[in-house]
Design a protein around this nucleic acid. Sequence first.
RNA 1: GGGCUCAUAGCUCAGUUGGCAGAGCACUGUGCUGAUAACGCAGGGGUGGAAGGUUCGAAUCCUUCUGAGCCCA
Length: 935
Amino acid sequence: MTYFSAVITLTYFMDYSKTVNLPKTDFPMRANLVQREPEMLKSWESENIFRKMSELHAGGPRFTLHDGPPYANGHIHLGTAFNKILKDIAVRSQMREGKQALFRPGWDCHGMPIEHQVMQKSGRKKAEVDPVSFRKEAAEYAKKFVEIQKKEFQRLGVYGEWNNPYLTLLPEYEAQEVRIFADLSLAGYIYRGKRPIYWCTHCETALAEAEIEYKDLSTDSIYTLFPLAGDPQKLLSGAENTFFLVWTTTPWTLPANVALLVHPELNYSLVEFEGRNIILAENLIPVVFSKVGKKATLRQTNIKGKELTTLLAKHPFLERNVPVIPANFVSAEDGSGIVHSAPGHGEEDFLVGKEHNLPVLSPVNETGRFTADVPEWQGISVWDANPLIVQKLRDNNCLLFSEEISHSYPTCWRCKNPVIFRATEQWFLNVDHQDLRRRMIKATEEIKFFPPESQHRMEGMLETRPDWCLSRQRHWGIPVPILFCRDCKKPLMEERKVFERIAEVFSREGSDSWFKKEANDFVPKDVSCACGSNRFEKEKDILDVWFDSGVSWAGVLEGAGSCPADLYLEGSDQHRGWFQTSLITSMATREKAPFRQVLTHGFMVDESGRKMSKSLGNVISSEEVLKEFGADIVRLWAAGQDYGSDIKTSLHGFKVVAEQYRTIRNTLRFILGNISDFNPEEDAIKKENLLPVDRWALAEVSRFQAEAFSGYQNFSFYRVAGQIYDFCNLTLSAFYLDILKDRLYTYSKNSPERRSGQTALYHIGELLIDLLAPILVFTAEEAWRYLPRRKSDPESIHLRGHENFQEFKDETLTVAFNEFFGLRKEILKTIEDVRAQGEIGSSLEAKVDVKVNPELLLKLAPLLLEKYLKELLIVSEAEISANPKSSEPEIIVNRTNLPKCPRCWVHHNEIGRSSAYPDLCPKCADAVSSLQNVM
RNA sequence: GGGCUCAUAGCUCAGUUGGCAGAGCACUGUGCUGAUAACGCAGGGGUGGAAGGUUCGAAUCCUUCUGAGCCCA
C-alpha cells in the first residue's frame, strides 16, 4: 500500500511538473551589487547614458538643484554620501517628471583646512612661505581630492556633469567672485573697521564664526570690586566707601575695560560687608555671599538697573573712570548682575559700546601678548596674565573672591586652542546696509522650506547675525581685491574699472596673479587716487572661504541662466553657512534670493544618538558600507531616512536595509519570471476584460503611483521608499502574487485568465522599476533589461518617462477589497487554528464556509466571490452566504473531501471529466492538451 | 546659558483634528517545497524618556526635568 501510493505520486510529479508555467528569468536572485555596479557604470559610460539623460527634456521646463560644494579635503564620508544621494534622487525624480534637470557638482577648494594640511606637510610656518609656490601646492592638493571624491560620488551612481564640475579655484569662478565683491563695494556694503573678531593666537589669524568649536574649559570666575567714583544724583544713601561688584571670567580683558553693564530692569541692592558698601543684583545676594562664606547686611534695596546708570565707577587698577551702561543681555542668573565691558574683546560689548560711543581698546597683539599700552604686563600672553591680574586685584584689595568654573569656551577648529576676541582692522560686509537684514528675512517668507520649521530657524539666525567679517590673514584663498594708495593709504573702492581689470586678469591667469604682479598692473592708466597719487599697493588679506561658496549662484547659475535655483539641499548647519552667505550676496547685489526652495537634513549620529566623530570611534565610513553592501543599498538607506531629524546609523541598520532590498529584488524577480513569455503589445488584456482581482491590483497600482509621485514632488523620499517596500511586501508578496501563482502556473499559457494576471504583473513591474529608478539606479536598470519591451521603449530606464496608470483607478473595487481584507484576516486565523490541530497542512486542503450579514455581502459583490473566493483564499472549496442574524462573520473551516488534482494541487469535484486525462481537473486537462497541440 | 528639533515594541519608524497604542524587521511557532541562500500564516512583545497639570478621557495640549542633535553665545 505504502509502496503503491509512492510510485503513483512520483509518476504524476514527474509528468506534470514539466507542464506548468514556472517563473523563468535570468534576472539573478543574488544582487552581487559590489561586482555588478561598476560594470553597469561602464556600460552607461559607453552608451553615453548621462549625456542622453541631460538631452532628454532639452527645451522643456528646467529643474536646477545647485550643488553646495563639499570641501576638497579627504575622502567622502557617510554624511557627504547621504547628501549627494538625496540630491541625486531629487534630480532624477524631477527628470522623470519630464523636466530638464542638470546637475553640476562643485567643490570648495580654498581655506584653512587645506592650507593647514599643506603647511603641515612642508613643516613651514606662515611667515616663511612664498605665497606663489605655496598656492600651487595647495591647488594641487585640492585638485587631487576633487578627483578622489569625484570617483567616490560616481561610484554611488550619482548623475551629474562630472566632466564639467565647478571648482572655486577655477579662474572664471574667481573672476566672477571679484565682480560680486565689486558690486558689493560699489553699493556701499563693504567697509573696513576695527572690530573684535575671533582670533586664534596660535594660528595667528582671524577666524570665522564657522571656524569656532565650543569646548568645556575651566576658567577663572572672579568677583572684583570697582570703587564708586561719582554719584551726582545722590542715588545712594552713603556714597562713601562704596563699590560695584563686577563679575568676569576673563580677567585679562580688564585692562581694556571701558564700562560697567547692568540690566536696566533688574533690581539692585546695596549691602554692607566688612566695612564696605557693595552694589549687586538683589536676587544674587544669597548666592554670592554663600560662596564668600560670610554674611552681608542689607542697606538699601529696590534700585533699578537704569537708575545705576547715573553713576560713575573707578577702574580697580588703572587711572580711569568708567560709566555704568544698561544692556539687556546682562544675566540675572550668574555672577553679580554687573559685568565689565571691553568692546575690543567681545561681540556684545562692542555693540553696546558702539551705541554709547565707547572707545574700542585692544591692547593685545596677534600672538596674544599685551602691547605697550599695558606696560605692567607688556609681552606677557593673556593666558599667563590672568593669574597676575587676579593677584593685582587682590593686592589692591579689590577682589571679593575668585573660583574656577567650567563653561563652554570658543576654541579654534584647527588647532583646538582657546581663542580670544581681539579688535583688528578687517574687511566687513554690512548686513544692515540698505535694510539688507530686513529684506533677507522678508525673502525667506517667499521661499519654500523642507521641513517648514527650517524657515523660523533661518529667520532667527538672520535676526541676530553680526556683520560678516570677510577678510582672513592667510595665503590659500582669493585675495580681497582692494588696492590702497601708497601715499594717503586710502583704499580704492569706488572704481569699477579697477575691479574690472582685476576680474579680467583673474579670468585669464587665476587669482595667483595677485601675488605675482605689481599693484599697478591692476590699475588702468587713467585711474589715480583722490589725493592725486597713482602709486598703489595690494591688500594682503584673502577672502573668507565662505565668500567663495557664497557667490556660487553667480559663478555657476547665472551664466547658465538658472538663477534662482529650484533647490538648495544641505545639512542643517548650512542655515548659518552656505544658505545664509548665498542669500546675503544675492540679496545685496541682485535683490533676490538665489533659491526658491531649501531642503535641510540632519546629521549622522550613532545608534545611541550621539554625533559621529573620530574621537568617539563611532564613525561608519562610506567606503566600508559601499564595499560590503554596494551603492544601491547605500542609496536605499539614504532614501529611507526621515532627514528632518538626525539620522541614526549603524552597521546593523544597513543589514536591515539590505534585507529590505532583497525583498524588493525578489519581488522584481518573481514578476519578471512570470512575464517572460508576455508581449505587452500582443498579449495584454483590455482593462474591461481583466479579472476583478487583476483590476483591483491595477487600481492599487494607480493609487500607489499617485502617492509615490506626491512623495517625490515633496522630496519625501523616505515616504516613497516606505511605500515601495510596503507595496512589495504587503500588497504583492503577502497577497496578490500569492493568489496569482495558481493562475500563472497552471492555466494554459495563452488563456485569458493567465494573460489577465500577466497584464497586471507587467504594469506592476513597469511601475516598480519606474518608481525605483531614482533610488535604486543600478537595480532598476538591471531589471529593466529583463522586462519585456515595447518597440518604443528606450535602452535605459533612465531615459524613459513615466507610464501613467491613473486610468486604472477604481474606487468601488478598492473599497470592496478593503472590506474583503478584514474578512480574509479572520478566515486565515481560523485556517491557522485548524492547521494547528493537525487537520490540514496546505491551505489547499481546506474547505471554507462563511456566513456574513447581508450588508457586508453586498459590499463584497464587485469581487464576484461566488466564483473567485477560493482563489482569493488559496483554498480548494469556499462558499459565502448571507445570514441576517450574524453581526460578526461565522467562519467554518474543514478538511476537504475532494480528490486532489496532481497537477495544480487543488482539490476538485470535476476530476476525470476529461477522458484523455482522467486524473486531472478540467482546467489542467485543457492546459496539458493545448500544450500537446502546440507540440 | 539662548533658539530650533527629537525621544512610541529589542531595532527602524506610523499614528490627520485629544477617543480601544499600530506596521516592518528581529524573535517564537508553523505551513509549503512550483519565488527555494525564497514564499505564506499565526503568536509573544509596550509603565508611550521622567514627573506634574488641564480634561469625562492625553502618545497627542500645558509646565518642569532628563538625554540627544544642529546652530548661536
